[in-house]
Nucleic acid binder design. Structure first.
Ligand SMILES: [Mn+2]
Ligand SMILES: [Mn+2]
Ligand SMILES: [Zn+2]
Ligand SMILES: [Zn+2]
Lengths: 140, 140
DNA sequence: TAACTACTTTATAATTATTCTAAAGTATGT
DNA sequence: ACATACTTTAGAATAATTATAAAGTAGTTA
C-alpha cells in the first residue's frame, strides 16, 4: 500500500467524508483547495488551469468537476453564481457575505453586517439563509 | 406609414430609448414585459416560450436576446443570476431585494430590509449597491 | 501473487445558455 | 421606385457543464 502520508490526513478526510477515495489526483486537488490560510474563491476552470499549469501530467476536466461537486455536496465548499453566470466555489463554508469588485470576490464576515429590519418569510416558508452582496466601484 | 397606436406609446418609448426601432416583434415583447401591474422575473427562454406558445409566427431567439439586452442596457430591466447560472431579468428596476424560493423569485421592497451595520468599502472603492437574497425553505 | 471486482480517470460527446454570422426581409429618406 | 440602413432569422459557434464509455487502478480474495 502507498505509505500513509500523515500530514495529508485533513485533506484526505475531506475526500473520504465526501464519499471519495483519496486518489492522487483528488488529494492534490483537496490540498490545493484547503491548504491555505485565506478563503479561496474559484471557478472550476480557474482551478483546473492553475493546477494543471505546473504539472506534466494534467488532471482531466471531469475529475475537477466531479471532485469539486462531491466536496460541495458534502458541505466542504459553498457555491454561488458570478455575474457572468458561472459557478464560483468558496472554501469559506461559514455563513458570510461578499463584496463583488469587478471580477474579484472578497469575503465579508457575517458579523460585519447586521440587520435592523428583515421581512418575514411568506406563509408556510421559513428563512434558510440570508446573503448580502455589496457591489463595489472605483472612487471618483 | 402604420397608424401610430397611441396606447402603445409607453412600450414604444422604452424601445426608442434603448436605441431600438419599434418593430412589431419588439413592440410585442415590450408590451408583454411591461404591460403588467406586478414585477415580472423571467429568463429569456421562459419569455420566448410563453410568447411563442400562442403565436403562429414565432419570434426568433436572437430577437428575444437582442431586445432584452438592449432594454437591460438602457436600464429598463435589471439582470441577476439564478442559482442554476442563468440570467434572470426583472422589470422592477428600483433597488430592491429578493426571496429565492426554490425556482421562484419574489421581490422584497427596499424598505423592508434595513441595516444596523454595514462594512466600509475597501480603500479606493465605494459601494455601488447592496443586494440581499433571502433563501426560503418549507416549514417543518 | 493472480484473479476478481469495484471504483477512477480520461477523452470525447452531448447539453444548455448564450452569442455570432450572414443572408434575406423591411422600413425610411429622397 | 431606389438606395440605404436597420431587422429578423436560421443556423453556426462558444463556453460552461454534464454524460458516456473505455481503459486504468486499487482493494479484496483465493
Ligand atoms: Mn454544478
Ligand atoms: Mn447577457
Ligand atoms: Zn466567500
Ligand atoms: Zn425583483
Amino acid at each position: 500500500m502507498p505509505k500513509m502520508n500523515n500530514k495529508n490526513k485533513i485533506f484526505i478526510d475531506k475526500l473520504r467524508s465526501s464519499g471519495l477515495r483519496p486518489t492522487n489526483q483528488r488529494v492534490e486537488i483537496s490540498k490545493f483547495l484547503f491548504n491555505r490560510k485565506k478563503t479561496f474563491h474559484f471557478t472550476v476552470e480557474e482551478l483546473k488551469n492553475s493546477m494543471n499549469l505546473k504539472r506534466p501530467k494534467k488532471i482531466s476536466t471531469a475529475t475537477f468537476y466531479n471532485t469539486v461537486h462531491a466536496l460541495k455536496s458534502a458541505g466542504h465548499l459553498k457555491e454561488f453564481s458570478l455575474e457572468n453566470n458561472t459557478s464560483c466555489y468558496d472554501t469559506n463554508i461559514t455563513s458570510h457575505h461578499h463584496f463583488f469588485d469587478n471580477g474579484r470576490v472578497i469575503d465579508i464576515k457575517s458579523d460585519k453586517i447586521t440587520f435592523q429590519k428583515l421581512p418575514e418569510a411568506p406563509k408556510g416558508k421559513k428563512i434558510k439563509n440570508v446573503e448580502v452582496v455589496i457591489r463595489l466601484e472605483n472612487n471618483n
